[in-house]
């Protein structure tokens, strides 16, 4: 069963298209990472799934219903981001108990255990929390709500690396015991790729890739070596990325399937095969036309 079905969805703000003819499906109980650069449209898409905004064109269904303004979808969905605000008259523990009454599967024991583990002060006001603590607190709500669709938009903003690790671990552990559909967004894939099953890579409001993370890891390789030899080797093949890193030397990123047959000959040609991190690959895949930041400086 698909929890989310998105067909040709476009979201325009005036002339500007935040999302452009996006189509994908997300199956039940999968953890999917929404990856893209700043401004790629991740948040717009997640808010649309959560029912905050409606598509300009196309059809979006969540739990087989249009999510916008839908109370049933809202009851099964929680959307966590760092813009969440709570009344100043509530202390942190009040927030946990007040929000609890809205979500059928809310687990108070888990919420309180996490709250204590991250050593929050029960009497503090939410608006006084630091950026990282706010993210941590909001994430506790996200995990403890156990919503069939849990959406976490850049949940680790401001968290230090120890808390990040704990958070991802907590999320995964609770997911293993209580499977649910989880959407996580981040511009940094490396920190969360281990817990993901699928990844949806968004570039400029359009879908770039939607595949299991394991396949992404084996999608492409980097090859480095003499410019002439390398260019002959990859001739006529589509390159994901190309960079001149020293005089006469070239570095290219290419899909593995394109060079499967010739793979044995790479080393014989004096070329070097390098693994490529998924983070770098995502950057290259969503890169603007050719070149990198180095080109900016070369012109001078």
């Amino acid at each position: 069963m698909n929890v989310i079905q998105c067909r040709d969805v476009t979201k325009s703000y005036g002339q500007n298209k935040a999302l452009d003819r996006l189509s994908f499906e997300i199956g039940e109980n999968k953890i999917t990472g929404f990856i893209g650069r700043n401004g790629a449209g991740k948040t717009t898409l997640l808010k649309m799934i959560a029912g905050y905004i409606k598509p300009t064109q196309g059809e979006l269904q969540v739990f087989s219903r249009k999510p916008f303004n839908n109370l049933d979808v809202s009851a099964k969905t929680i959307f966590i981001d760092d813009n969440m605000t709570f009344p100043d008259s509530f202390r942190l523990t009040d927030i946990l108990s007040e929000v609890a009454s809205f979500y059928a599967a809310w687990n108070s024991n888990l919420a309180i255990a996490l709250f204590n583990y991250f050593s929050f002060d029960p009497n503090q006001a939410h608006s006084n929390l630091s950026k990282g603590s706010k993210s941590t607190f909001n994430s506790i709500i996200g995990i403890a709500s156990r919503c069939p669709l849990t959406i976490l938009d850049e949940p680790t903003t401001g968290m230090d690396s120890a808390v990040r690790k704990d958070f991802y671990k907590a999320l995964l552990k609770d997911y293993l015991e209580h499977p649910r559909t989880i959407l996580l967004s981040s511009h940094l894939l490396s920190e969360l790729e281990e817990i993901l099953e699928d990844i949806l890579l968004i570039d400029n409001g359009s879908k770039c890739l939607h595949l299991p993370v394991m396949e992404l890891r084996e999608l492409a390789v980097g090859i480095r070596g003499n410019e002439q030899a390398l260019l002959t080797f990859v001739e006529g093949k589509e390159l994901i990325y190309k960079e001149e890193f020293a005089k006469g030397s070239l570095y290219v990123v290419i899909k593995k399937e394109l060079i499967e047959q010739e793979f044995k000959h790479v080393r014989q040609n004096g070329l070097e095969v390098l693994p490529i991190s998924t983070d770098d690959l995502c950057v290259y895949l969503t890169g603007k036309t050719g070149g990198g930041i180095d080109d900016v400086f070369k012109r001078g």
Binding site: I31, L176, I195, V213, M214
Partner: peptide, 17 residues
């Protein structure tokens, strides 16, 4: 796969593979 996912902090699909 679930025990392995928990032990290694990876997605159960990865452990299953």
């Amino acid at each position: 796969q679930y025990q392995l996912a928990d032990m290694f902090t990876v997605n159960p699909a990865t452990a299953a593979k």
